[in-house]
Write a protein that binds this DNA or RNA. Structure first.
Length: 549
RNA sequence: GCCCCCGUAGCUCAGUGGACCAGAGCGACGGCCUUCUAAGCCGUGGGUCGCAGGUUCGAAUCCUGCCGGGGGUGCCA
């Protein structure tokens, strides 16, 4: 990685300058570098400006002293100080082109690292209630969680992908009664539709399906003959539809975690008892409350209702206790929708109560912002109970998996985004994702043209455009690392768009396959490397890299 | 009321302490197909970075207030 090489160089330079007495001693400094790729520099560090305050010397003087003591390095062709005290680097052309072989050789692993050192991480995402089809918003959480999991794996973490299935509790009861209402009707019986019941058309469809497959065996007196089993039947159908949507989006899970199964194990009672033992529980008004104390959330929240059943909060505490205590994940990342963000502080407070010594950073909760869906020019209110929402399926059918994934992954997760279905339909062929895929297909096309193998030996006259393209490829591992550490997959999407732009431009300006055997060989190596980086990057986003378009 | 997120080009969004960092895509306008895919390339136009203060050598980026949009604030999940 160029960035870390330069950082190390600067550290050496600083030490040497300090040993020579040119700069006052300081605590160890980590030099950050910014990739610029413009007329000013390839890479630049502003660390001397920050050092000025610590050292008590003008930044320019510090920068010059560091530069004067830099050890020689083959990758650096030029280094100079500029402006108020920037240290600017230019990367050596020959060195850059030499790295292409390494990229091609590393292949699909290029861009990865062992940063995670095998640490176990659980990423939990989607986890939508199986009470209806996935909404478009759930799709956002899905692709974000999926891309994060891919990034973490590439960076050397041991990743477990998990979907928490809310197959128990109040909303499942409501679901059961909602479906039963239609089920009974199909069989000529009458059953009340519950207050707050699910209104979507799909409820009737599910009921019809159950009546067709199971006959009248669920008919009871106004309620299902076996409510729990009937609910499970409805959940089964809901989950199957969810799985199909996720499948089409290329999202997979290692674990489908059942809330019901966890409850049946007595995990909820157990965790409440543990909290009680630590003095975080109080009883009032016939209910049992969590008193978080001096945590992030000083509000008190109900764990067990006065009618005796646990709240969603209590169950979720038990679930997270299971992640850490029972299954021993070193780190857990939850991807939640914006409508749950108020739940974040009390979840952290509860985790702290369970294990005060635990590093709170072990639980990261990422909140993806709302996806507003614009239909007929109007921002619609989304709600599963009301049955008024745009489904992920609709979006998938309109724009396809690649464009859907790219759309969600090209924006920072904390930006509220607007999805205009009509616009998405119209702009379909113009979607940037095809631009990136096209770049990959063009690489493949060039390789098809170059049928005979040529040797890459010998000096060839390559242009500054060749080198600039190659240098960009070397930034890929840096982008991957940043995207992973900051939990920002959209950085990869933007890098790919930029790379595709540079490549398309290059493609129009320069021919790869020509009579010049040596140059052709070198450019083919460049193209192979470009193709590899595009493929690896698209892979991280879960988007196909087609050979032809 | 209180809490969280957002406010950057006509639209959708990057950039969140650095010096051409005021950007990309789409849309608009004008060019380019006998050579590796025109799903492409080249060029033009377009923004007081919501507003007002403050901190800093330096602010779209940090702080405060205000305005606007969204979400949360339940013994729902």
């Amino acid at each position: 990685m160029i960035r870390s090489r330069l950082s190390a160089l600067l550290s050496h330079g600083l030490s040497a300058a300090q040993a020579a007495g040119a700069i006052a001693a300081t605590p160890p400094v980590t030099f950050s570098l910014e990739r610029r790729e413009d007329d000013l520099a390839h890479y630049s560090s502003s660390e001397a400006l920050r050092l000025a305050r610590i050292v008590g010397a003008p930044p320019r003087t510090i920068a010059e002293a560091i530069v004067a003591h830099l050890p020689p390095a083959p990758e650096v062709s030029r280094v100079e100080t500029a402006g108020p005290g920037f240290i600017n680097f230019w990367i050596d052309d020959v060195w850059v082109l030499d790295q292409l072989r390494e990229i091609v050789h590393t292949g699909t692993a290029y861009g990865g690292s062992n940063h995670g050192e095998g640490a176990s991480v659980q990423v939990e995402y989607v986890s939508a209630n199986p009470t209806g089809p996935l909404t478009a918003g759930a799709g956002r959480g899905g692709v974000v969680g999926d891309a994060l999991a891919r990034l973490l794996e590439t960076c050397g973490y041991d990743v477990t992908r998990e979907y928490y299935v809310n197959d128990a509790g109040h909303q499942v009861e409501i679901l059961g009664l909602s479906v039963y209402h239609h089920y009974a009707a199909t069989l000529g019986e009458e059953a009340p539709f519950p207050a707050d019941g699910y209104q979507g058309d799909y409820i009737a469809e599910w009921a019809t399906r159950i009546a067709r497959d199971d006959g009248s065996r669920w008919l009871g007196n106004g309620v299902p003959s076996n409510p729990r089993a009937f609910e499970a039947r409805a959940v089964e159908i809901g989950l199957a539809e969810i799985r199909r949507d996720l499948d089409d989006l290329g999202i997979e899970f290692d674990v489908w975690f059942s809330e019901q199964a966890m409850r049946d194990r007595g995990a909820v009672e157990e965790v409440i008892q543990t909290l009680d033992g630590r003095g975080f529980v109080a009883e009032r008004d016939g209910a049992i409350w969590f008193i978080g104390g001096a945590g992030e959330d000083d509000r008190e929240n109900v764990l067990v209702r006065s009618r005796g059943d646990p709240t969603y909060f209590a169950v979720d505490i038990a679930y997270h206790q299971d992640k850490f205590a029972a299954r021993g994940f070193e780190r857990v990342i939850d991807v939640w929708g914006a409508d749950h963000h108020g739940h974040v502080p009390r979840m952290h407070a509860a985790m702290q109560a369970l294990d005060a010594s635990a590093d709170t950073a072990r639980l990261e909760i990422l909140v993806t912002q709302m996806v507003g869906i614009r239909t007929d020019g109007e921002l619609g209110r989304q709600g599963k109970r009301s049955g008024r929402f745009v489904t992920l399926r609709e979006v998938l059918d309109e724009v396809g998996p690649a464009a859907t994934r790219y759309f969600f992954l090209s924006k920072a997760i904390d930006s509220q985004m607007e999805f205009d279905l009509e616009l998405a339909k119209r702009e379909d062929p113009e979607n940037p994702v095809y631009y990136i895929q096209m770049a990959h297909a063009r690489c493949a096309g060039i390789q098809r043209t170059a049928t005979t193998a040529r040797t890459a030996d010998g000096a060839a006259s390559l242009t500054a455009d060749d080198v600039a393209l190659a240098r960009r490829l070397l930034a890929f591992p840096e982008v991957v690392e940043d995207a992973c550490l900051n939990r920002e997959p959209h950085r990869v999407a933007h890098f790919l768009l930029e790379l595709a732009r540079v490549f398309h431009s290059y493609y129009n300006k320069h021919r790869v396959v020509t009579d010049d055997a040596v140059r052709t060989a070198r450019r083919l190596e460049l193209v192979r490397a470009v193709r590899q980086v595009l493929a690896n990057g698209l892979g991280l986003l879960g988007i196909a890299a087609p050979e032809r378009m």
